[in-house]
């Protein structure tokens, strides 16, 4: 098995790594690039804890090969805040206590950001369906939906 060199962009930074051919983007982010914000909850695309964007598109990084990231732009939770300034969604999740254990939070934040970029004024139902692939076992989703909606309102009026 020969390792593959990959040049890609993660959160705006040009990075290079080598990976095994069958290695997932999630494993490369976590183990090669020390970006452990994306989590493996299932490894099969059923929980969304590994959500990242790939060329602007929301994906499960456990269902992408690391080698596919060649020349791509990857966005992770680590890229959401602008230096010491939290993204509106991040602040909203804190203000609304929209997390308990927090393991699903990075994936839900990345997914919510992708939602609001596409649909700045979603209904509750649209938020819930968009996030259906992000399992949260602690909150029952109630405060998450409220936090996303509050962030959306703030972003619209900003």
């Amino acid at each position: 098995m020969k390792s593959i060199p990959v040049s890609t962009t993660v959160n705006g930074d040009a990075v290079d790594f080598v990976c095994a051919p069958g290695e997932t983007l999630l494993d490369a982010l976590r183990n090669r690039l020390s970006l452990t914000g994306a989590k493996e909850g299932c490894g099969t695309g059923d929980c969304g804890a590994c959500s990242v964007t790939l060329n602007g598109r929301l994906v499960c990084s456990c269902l992408v090969l690391a080698a596919e990231a060649e020349g791509a732009e990857v966005g992770t939770v680590e890229g959401m805040a602008d230096h010491d300034k939290l993204h509106v969604l991040q602040q909203s999740f804190l203000d609304h206590a929209a997390l308990q254990c927090g393991i699903c939070t990075p994936g839900i934040l990345v997914a919510s950001k992708a939602l609001l970029e596409e649909n700045p004024e979603p209904t509750d139902e649209e938020v819930r369906y968009w996030l259906a692939g992000n399992l949260c076992r602690c909150t029952g989703y109630d405060k998450i939906v409220r936090a996303v909606q509050d962030a959306a309102a703030k972003m619209r009026s900003a």
């Binding site: 695309g45 499960c60 992000n134």
Partner: peptide, 9 residues
């Protein structure tokens, strides 16, 4: 088919 994430691929 699948979630929003899966739809991306």
């Amino acid at each position: 088919i699948g979630s929003t994430q899966v739809q991306g691929r």
